[in-house]
Structure formats: C-alpha cells, structure tokens
Simulated assay, not measured.
Amino acid sequence: MLDAHRLAVLAEVAHAGSIAAAAKRLAFTPSAVSQQLAKLERDVGARLLGRHARGVTLTPVGEALLAHAEAIVGELRTAERTVRALLEEEPAQLTVGTFASAGMTLVPAALADFRRDHPGVALRLLDLEPPDGYGLVRARDLDLLITHRYPGAPLPDPRGLDRTLLRSERFRLILPKGHAKARVRRLTLAALAAEDWISGSPGVPNRACLEQLAGAAGVRLRVAYETRDYQVIVALVEAGLGVAFVPESVLERVSPARVDVRDAADARPAREIFLVHHRRPGRLVTEMVARLNRPQ
C-alpha cells in the first residue's frame, strides 16, 4: 500500500513547482523531501518527476498519481479539521482562490457580507490565474475556487469536484478617448488591423482569445504591449498607446470620460466564470457560493 505521507509530499511538490519551495512550505530540508519522493518512486516502480533548472515537472505516471494524492490529502485534512473543530482546538476557516479581475469586482462584496455574518471565521484569499487551482481544491488547500475559461480554451478535468457556471461575461473593445475609429459606425477587427494592440503574452488566455478572433476575421493584429493585468491595459489605452478588449466588469470602475467603449461587429468575445469546490463542500462554502450567485 502506498504511504499517505509520501503522497502528501508529492502533492506539495507539484503545487509548489520545485522541491526547494515544497521543502520550505513543509518545514523540511530539500534532501528530506527528495528522499520521500525517491521512496515513493520505489513503491510505485516508476519515475514520478523530471527535474530541470526551474523546478520539476510530473511524468505521465506522476500526473496520474497526483490526482489520487490530492484526493487522499484532501480527505485527511477534512477529517483533521472536523475533529479539531469538534474539540474547539481550531477556529473555522474559509480559503478562496480567485483570478485578479474577479478579485477586484466579484469577491470583495461577497467576502465583506460573509464577514459580517461570520466574524469568527478565519478568511483567506489566494490570487490564482486559471487554469491553476483545481488540485488545491482536491487537496483541501482551497475551499472554493473562482476560475474562468476564454473562448476555445479547454477546461481542466474536474474529477472529484463540482464545477458550476457562475456567469458569462462579455468583453468590450476600448480605444483612447477621441480615437478616430471610435466614430466608425460599423467597427471591425479589419478596421483596427493597423492599430497597436494591448494584450497578454503568447499563451496567456486573453492573448489566445485575441488571436483566435483575429484568425476568424481573417486579419493579423499587432500586439505592441504585453500585460495580463487589465488595470494596466486600461491605463495604457487611456494614455493613447493602443486598443484592447477588456471584461465588462472591469469597465464598471472606469470613467466613460477616460476611454471610448465599443463593440466590434465581427468579434463579440465572452468568457465563462466558474465556481469549483469539493463535492461535499460544507456549510461555509455553500454560504459563500450563495453570496457570489446574488445579482451584482
């Protein structure tokens, strides 16, 4: 039978991205972590990790074992918290993971409302860019994950978890205030092909979405400024440096006097926002989900 402690070490290394980072979180030495992994590999009879200069990557066997390790660690943590709560040795806690723009728009009011009703619950918020976070929910490092999917992007395997659609959020085209193209009656991506665009770096979801839209429209767009931070994108557009697509919720905090907001006739992107939690979420998670589902 595989050792649960060694499986927990594997999960920690996978989440931390390196043996050194996992050792720090576990309060072990790196050599002790390496020894536990070596013993687990002997138990399994296969290599689980590939080591490289920037950390580690899981082998296919390691990836398959990780999902089970996360589930086992999650069950052990749930059992431990249940006992400690019954013995009043540990206060109730709720850990939420979210991506940046949801952390700015969707989460604050829900957390504040939750805090008013549950002042004794320890709240924790983690900044996680999708698709990260699913494994943390399985291992019970996270109680609730707020994540998204852009058009055309695959969804991670939700094995052992519940994933529900919270909302679909459309994107709007923003241009510097007074931009000549903002007055065009039927604005298309082709009409903006000569503009400097602002988006994430290659592989970042908003960049992949933009490239997909451009391909569908049969045009090539030039991304001159790369950032995944929508607040930075808005600031660069305000400064007259380019044009961009941003989620509609981000524009709730942007003055109409600062940018021109339009829709492209040939591109109406939207992203799906999901809530992910364990199949037995518990009362606190259920209450937070209810708050997030309330109309904004």
Results as ranks from 00 to 15, higher is better:
A71E: 03
A71W: 00
V73G: 00
V73C: 03
E75N: 11
E75Y: 04
E75G: 07
E75A: 13
L76I: 09
R77I: 01
E80N: 12
E80V: 12
R84N: 12
R84A: 14
A85R: 14
L86C: 11
L87T: 12
L87S: 12
L87I: 06
E88Q: 14
E89K: 13
E89C: 10
E90T: 14
E90A: 10
P91V: 08
A92C: 12
A92H: 10
Q93W: 12
Q93C: 15
T95Q: 12
V96T: 04
V96I: 15
V96N: 02
G97E: 02
G97L: 03
T98E: 04
T98Y: 00
F99K: 02
A100R: 09
S101A: 12
G103F: 01
G103I: 05
M104T: 14
M104N: 11
T105N: 15
T105E: 13
L106I: 04
P108L: 08
A109V: 13
A110T: 05
A112I: 12
F114C: 01
R115V: 07
R116P: 03
H118S: 08
G120K: 13
R124G: 09
L125T: 05
L125H: 02
D127C: 05
D127S: 13
D127I: 08
D127Y: 10
L128P: 01
E129G: 09
P130N: 05
P131W: 03
D132H: 10
D132E: 14
G133R: 02
G133Q: 01
Y134I: 06
G135Y: 00
L136C: 06
V137G: 01
R138N: 05
A139K: 00
A139I: 01
A139N: 02
R140E: 11
R140I: 07
L142G: 05
L144Q: 01
L144E: 00
H148A: 15
R149M: 08
Y150N: 12
P151Q: 05
P151G: 05
G152Y: 03
A153R: 05
P156F: 06
D157M: 01
P158H: 05
P158V: 03
G160Y: 04
G160W: 03
L161P: 09
R163S: 11
L166C: 07
R167T: 12
